[in-house]
Design a protein around this nucleic acid. Structure first.
Lengths: 225, 225, 225, 225
DNA sequence: AATGAATGAGCGTTCATTCAT
DNA sequence: CATGAATGAACGCTCATTCAT
């Protein structure tokens, strides 16, 4: 269930240095998810990555740097795939629903990444902005399509994000069941001014499960390395 | 603006032990708020409380214990007052709006408590439950009054809480302005199925500011001590 | 030969805390002398002082603080005794000669302190000033007595100090023999304009050896603690 | 003002290996001067020298070795030039004065080398001996010329050196002004038994400034490489 | 000869916690 | 109940050095 080689998989064909760096990022992702940024120690990261403690500082200036690197890489990886998976969907109502539902379902398929994302979004406002850029586009599309009867501002954007994050969190904690994604999507659509019946229909309609690709694109690897 | 004697004020008439404990909790509340739970050290707490560092362990088993004690006490204190301040309001729409708006305005009047609450709610699910008990009552009242067209379940409850918390957070960070409380209340009401026009009216109508009472009730003091 | 309890001896009658602090300062003096400030590690100091490494920080903010404390305490202790031991000598020529000779002889009787002094004087200009204040008084006295035919300025002062330090260093290294103190005193007096014959007479005349008092005065202990 | 290619300039015509070694020595000289021997790290040296860190150990056994190499080379380079610049001066009084004044003036024209020299002289007694060999010749010449009324021994030699070093140090620290060289030369001459009037005359008489040659002789390069 | 990733002991410092007084 | 000195494991980080390429 836990995929621990997001970065290593992508770096297999690269040099030895890149592989070590990837091992460190994998270890960090796992520990940040389990313990949080502060509680995860550099020594523990290197222990899990199976390198000497000094090796950490060959690849990262300090603990913050790996936190940022891991967070951004995971976030980009996830968001891009969610986005790519609905490239053929035009309707904003469908898009918002799909994004939320699939984002929440991350909690099941990749709990580590989910946790990293969840924590990182609080810590790095820039990351939040980058992630919500996709969301903003969909919301504005919805307004243009007269599907959302609401003014799009920062508070709405942030609130939608917080709602999705909250559902993800509930799933991760085991407080919510499988329906969390649909339920949250429904609530969001209602809030955005979508007719409650339509909101229910769209949010609960079965969708093909998106199985997240483990191996990042070469382009992503390049940015990470 | 910053209240630093929430607990001490209430413990004045009690014994010396209770006063020392109260001083520690006041110090802890201030430091947890300012630095976060992890960054606040026991030595710093005792320094601010003006007691010897060993005295801490006379009153609390460990750092976690004081965190729980402070969080629950602050949360109860705040929630009860928000509740008491609308004891004469029957309409659920008004109640939900008032609760959210005043909760968010905490960020201004008592940023210390706001931060403590915000952190504590993530940390202690039990605290979340206690706080949302009040909310649940209002939501069910709203359904009974046919004002909310929605099924009340844990996800809705949690989502409303997360939305308020998110607005509080935005205020604390300076990302949102004075209007955050009203805007969030409006979004919540829309989500709950209130007519958008009514939601806007209620959420943005001027309300008397609630100045939080500093001294906890005797009953609260008893529970804390 | 090596006195390692300058501070501990003085703190015997004080509380436990003062004794631990004294043990740390003794250990630090020994290690600073042997290895220098930078090479002496805090862990080593606590090991020699036979306390836990964390105990160091109960008594000193950081490594610098103990370096300053040790340096100033040793310097004051030494300088005051040199000064006190010639309270009945009026003649500036005699005084300068005595001070240099006895200072250099430190190298034999207390090599640890000698080394600490030598290093500290380079590191802490303020310490240099404090120490040379005594010297300045004697030089000015000599000018007033028409014994020194020279203008007293910072360079002269500093040069006399450097010369004495250099002789101390040579003794510590084993490069110079017993005569170093007298030889250096003679050179200094010649430089100051004293007649070469008189310089030789005064500098080489036998003097009672000053055995440095190990136990600092209560006043000194109070300043240190 | 700061010469950073003392060794590289001299190694231009040599092989690639010699050039790399020279680049490392230039970098080390600069960093030892700026930060001191202990604070200058091997990685920093290689970074400044623009070679890989592993390359360092192709050319030097350890950090000590480069410190010795740099110190001796700089010292020889400086001392030989000071000596060469007064090849036509016979009078020992003039020679001692010139040497001290020009040595102290190093602090202005080449503060980097000044600092390296100053530190190195304390660290490597053998270096001290090599440098003072020149000085000894002049002192003995002065005795032969009946200009110095003093017995030349190791202490006198060392003291003269310490005095010059002290003046250099004062200049580097900014504690002394332009006059430091002359003042110190005057003090030395007085100490050596030169008539105070003559000492003043010689020490303060204007001299042509010596601009140090950057490129070492081939012979020097050979010894370094 | 040159590279640069990797090592691991060691650094100064923090801090929750204990315990004799 | 209160004290505060003492503890020692753990922290983030540095750095001289090694070695496979």
């Amino acid at each position: 269930m836990i995929v621990s080689s997001l970065f290593l998989d992508g770096a297999r064909k690269l040099g030895k240095g890149a592989r070590t760096r990837a091992r460190l990022m994998d270890a960090a992702a796992r520990l940040f998810a389990r313990d949080g940024f502060e509680a995860a120690s550099v020594n523990e990261i290197t222990r899990v990555a199976d390198v000497a403690n000094g090796t950490f500082y060959v690849h990262f200036r300090d603990k913050d740097e790996i936190a940022v690197a891991v967070s951004f890489a995971v976030a980009q990886h996830v968001v891009r795939q969610l986005d790519a998976a609905m490239s053929d969907v035009d309707d904003a109502v469908e898009r918002v629903s799909l994004a939320t539902r699939r984002f929440v379902d991350l909690a099941i398929s990749q709990p580590d990444w989910g946790r990293v994302l969840f924590r990182a979004v609080w810590l790095f406002p820039r990351l939040r902005d980058e992630v919500t850029a996709y969301l903003r586009a969909d919301l504005e599309r919805g307004v243009a399509q007269c599907a959302f009867r609401i003014t799009i501002d920062d508070i709405v954007l942030d609130t939608i994000a917080a709602m999705s994050a909250s559902a993800l969190f509930g799933r991760l904690q085991g407080a919510f069941g499988l329906e969390a994604g649909s339920r949250m999507a429904e609530l969001q659509l209602r809030m955005l001014g979508v007719d409650p019946e339509r909101a229910r229909d769209v949010a609960w309609r079965p969708i093909p499960l998106l199985s997240l690709e483990l191996e990042p694109t070469d382009e992503q690897v390049a940015r990470i390395t």
